[in-house]
Amino acid sequence: MIEGRLSYNCNNDRYGLLVSDLWEYEGFHCGDPLEVKVDDKWIHTRIEMAWDEKGGHWYLVGTPYFDNLEYVCVRFKEDKDV
């Protein structure tokens, strides 16, 4: 598993994974599975986007994380083709 923190990549308008301030993965797509740390427990989730009159908002399904995902601790399988 690759573990790091989410950060918004303005080059591709997606959230990617930073490890030690370096891009480990430059941009997740809707539906990509992740695990996110909530209250010190790893929870299976996926990244999605909700739309309203103000535009798109990234969120992690089944978690409290919506819109601003900056610095959220996540991990995903290394062999995953994302």
Score class of each variant (00 low, 15 high):
K41V: 15
I43F: 05
V72F: 01
C73G: 00
W42A: 13
R5L: 11
E48V: 04
M49C: 13
H44R: 10
H57R: 05
Y15A: 11
L17S: 03
Y59E: 04
N12E: 08
Y15G: 08
S7M: 01
R46F: 04
E24I: 05
E3N: 06
N11V: 12
D32Y: 03
E35L: 06
R46H: 09
N68V: 09
V19K: 10
N68P: 04
K77A: 00
E35T: 05
Y8C: 10
W51G: 06
E35F: 07
R5N: 14
M1R: 10
D40C: 04
L34N: 08
C10P: 15
D67Y: 10
N11S: 15
Y59M: 06
I2P: 00
P64V: 11
G31P: 03
K54D: 15
K77P: 01
H29K: 12
G31E: 05
W23V: 02
Y8F: 15
F28W: 01
H57M: 07
V82M: 13
K41S: 14
R46Y: 07
H29T: 11
W58V: 05
H57T: 10
Y71L: 10
W23N: 01
V36F: 00
G55A: 11
N9F: 00
W51F: 13
L17T: 06
G4F: 06
K41T: 14
E26R: 13
L6E: 04
R5H: 12
E48Q: 11
Y65C: 06
L18K: 12
V74Y: 02
F66S: 10
M1Y: 09
D52S: 05
V38Y: 07
L17C: 15
V82T: 10
W23H: 01
K41P: 02
H29N: 13
E70A: 08
D39E: 13
L18R: 10
C10V: 13
E26Q: 14
Y15F: 13
Y25K: 15
E48N: 09
N11P: 05
V72L: 04
Y8G: 10
Y25P: 06
L17Q: 01
C10G: 08
F28R: 04
H57I: 03
C73R: 12
A50R: 09
E24D: 12
G31N: 02
R14L: 14
E48R: 12
L6R: 02
F76I: 00
V61L: 09
F76H: 04
L17Y: 01
Y59H: 11
R5V: 15
V19P: 09
I2K: 12
K77M: 00
V38D: 12
K80G: 11
W23I: 00
H29M: 10
K80Y: 14
M49G: 03
Y71H: 14
C73H: 14
L6N: 03
L6P: 06
H29I: 09
S20N: 15
Y71I: 08
G4E: 08
P33D: 07
V19W: 03
